[in-house]
Amino acid sequence: MYSKKVVIHYPAESSEKPIIYELVKRYDLMLNILKARIFPRREGILVLDLSGNRENFDDGIRYLKSLGLGVEPLSKSVSQNTEKCIHCGACTGVCPTGALSLDRESWRVVFDPELCNGCAVCVSACPVRAMEVDLL
């Protein structure tokens, strides 16, 4: 079983294709929609927690790319700007997945992109705007 959170960027012309259906039907992938912003004839974004066997997973991603969709791991879209971060820990109180935590040895705020679901609550909760989420 292979599992990864991915961000799918739709160009405007692909917004009406039933790609979720295809991912399930053709590639037997399990998916959980973490975030979706899709409007008719507009570019959109979809954040999926995608899992299945490795071969199907790779085929599914290839299929998405063949349609001209941008596919990236979620971890590429969310980042902690370590120049700005003052390691106060305010974000750790609001992060729902535990992706942001305070390391109680070093007292640094640590960001684990694997746990992040892209909700972006941290972006405005950070007093110094050190969390950067690029999901539209």
């Binding site: 003052i86 106060c88 820990g89 305010a90 974000c91 109180g93 007292w107 007093p127």
Partner: peptide, 13 residues
């Protein structure tokens, strides 16, 4: 209850 600070202990150190 989970507790989170506003002050930076790292910077205080």
């Amino acid at each position: 209850i989970p507790a989170a600070p506003l002050s930076s202990y790292l910077k205080a150190l």
